[in-house]
């Protein structure tokens, strides 16, 4: 089997397993796998930046969190529950924020870019945890979960666990295909060119700044999708979701799984979600466990878990 076939087989088996979880319908597994799939969406959106465009952004949690807060605001203040309205509005909020932050941050390059995105994340984090309008450090509860009904009959109720789970699954599949299609399109080739050598790509006549900003906004919107789903699944948002810790953890997820592969971050997301969950059961100090795993992966698996898959059985 070639590496590509092995990856495809792995993804198909994974998708079937995820559907099987829905069929079993156990509350605990739905919650855990739902959370893992949300992290997958979040992670592949960051992979577009880190793995393909070569932009290491620590602002990604901001878009996740802003979209989650947007849903909370729309639901609580405006009593909007229709996901056909709230989803596009929340994504638009995330994309708009990505446009502003990206426009400012992309003036900087390399390490400066990492630092500037970090600063913007923290700025938003403090704004949401200190300013009086957003529920402070306690966060906000959603008064009602998104509900789509036609003629009074519920069509899609995210308050229902199985429905929410399947909705998240569909969102993950769609995001995956959207991003992998995008990366195979000329747009993705230009991004790869920018990562390889930005000056040459510019010399070929591509406006690299515009491509980078577009990638930043697309990634921000997909991160917003993850944030929306997270808020809808838990019915709760809090400022920790847009802090640098969350950004760092996500970056870790992407690198642990293997950047620049799309499926790698998915593996990383499942790995970390389970490590977090079972680590917390095992010991009070599960972060130390995660920290140790991260250090070992950095030192001994430079290409992440995906590197193992690609090498297959040949060690």
């Amino acid at each position: 089997m070639t590496a590509r076939q092995r990856v495809q087989a792995l993804l198909c088996a994974g998708a079937l397993a995820l559907l099987a979880v829905a069929a079993v319908g156990d509350r605990f597994w739905l919650q855990l796998f739902g959370k893992a799939m949300i992290t997958c969406i979040f992670a592949i959106s960051l992979d577009l930046l880190v793995g393909y465009a070569g932009l290491v952004s620590l602002a990604h949690a901001a878009f996740f969190g802003l979209s989650a807060y947007a849903l909370a605001g729309l639901t609580n203040r405006l009593q909007l529950v229709n996901p056909l309205l709230t989803l596009p509005l929340a994504l638009a909020a995330a994309a708009l924020a990505a446009l502003c932050i990206g426009w400012l941050s992309l003036r900087a390059a390399g390490v400066y870019f990492i630092m500037v995105t970090l600063a913007f994340t923290q700025m938003l984090f403090y704004l949401f945890s200190e300013a009086p309008w957003f529920g402070g450090s306690d966060g906000l509860y959603l008064s009602q979960k998104p509900l789509l009904s036609i003629l009074g009959r519920p069509l899609l109720d995210l308050g229902n666990r199985t429905a929410a789970y399947l909705f998240i699954f569909a969102a993950l599949v769609l995001s995956y295909f959207f991003l992998s299609r995008l990366l195979r399109a000329p747009f993705g080739r230009v991004l790869a060119g920018i990562r390889g050598n930005e000056q040459r790509t510019r010399a070929l006549g591509f406006s690299t700044a515009r491509y980078k900003l577009t990638a930043f906004v697309i990634a921000g919107a997909v991160a917003g999708l993850a944030g929306y789903l997270d808020a809808a699944l838990y019915g709760f948002v809090n400022p920790a979701e847009l802090g640098w810790r969350q950004s760092g953890l996500l970056l870790m997820t992407v690198l642990l799984g293997g950047r620049g592969t799309l499926y790698g971050p998915i593996l990383g997301a499942f790995l970390l979600t389970f490590l977090e969950h079972y680590g917390a059961r095992l010991t009070d100090h599960s972060s130390a466990l995660i920290g140790a795993v991260v250090i070992l992966v950095v030192l001994f698996l430079p290409r992440g878990v995906a590197g193992l898959v690609e090498r297959g059985g040949r060690g």
């Binding site: 880190v50 390399g110 870790m252 690198l255 972060s287 991260v294 430079p302």
Partner: peptide
């Protein structure tokens, strides 16, 4: 290695030292 690996490694150290 690149900055990314360094960020990741030192982030792991942060988690480790915090728990320590």
């Amino acid at each position: 290695r690149d900055h990314l690996s360094q960020v990741l490694l030192t982030y792991g150290l942060v988690l480790l030292f915090n728990e320590l």
